[in-house]
Amino acid sequence: MSAAREYFAAIRRAVFSLADGLSVTVSYLLRRPVTIQYPDRTAQPVQRLLPERSRGLLEVDVERCTACGLCAKTCPIDCIVVETGKDAAGARLHTRMDVDLGRCMFCGLCVEACPTGAIRHSREFEGGMARVENLLVRFLDAPRPPAKPPKKGEEPPEKPAGSIIRSRLPGAFAPARRCAGGPDAKPGGAA
């Protein structure tokens, strides 16, 4: 007798607990959805929605870089190479500034080490490539004298975040997305 009672009690519990759960699900039919239709339909480019500190792809402003090499020394996985040489007159030349973004683990130690703010995280993250070697970014086109450490108040103007990496990784960020913000809302400074 008690087995039968327990059997029907279990059915009762099942029906009520299911109805309880379904009432939660049904209530969501009436609420505003929380998902966004990335990447096809976003109110703004997603890069702009990210917080200030967001650690995206690294970029180097060679005009600020003093070629001190602290970033390369701090990097735990050696994904940065900085090289210097001498020109004909014996002056110091910055000859190489390469970052292998395929290896980078986005820890931000290089950014903390950089004394002039030349290396920094952009908020770009969509650097998808068909070949991993293509994520090796060479930031220096030709050898140039390294920048002097700026005096207080005389720092060169900062380039807009993401503009450098966008020009260095062409194709990775194209095509421009259909954003609700209109043509002006096209992401960053893409060429």
Binding site: A10, R13, A14, S17, L18, D20, G21, S23, V24, T25
Partner: peptide, 9 residues
Amino acid sequence: ESLIGKNEI
């Protein structure tokens, strides 16, 4: 909890 935690199944 009411969605799943107390669900008999």
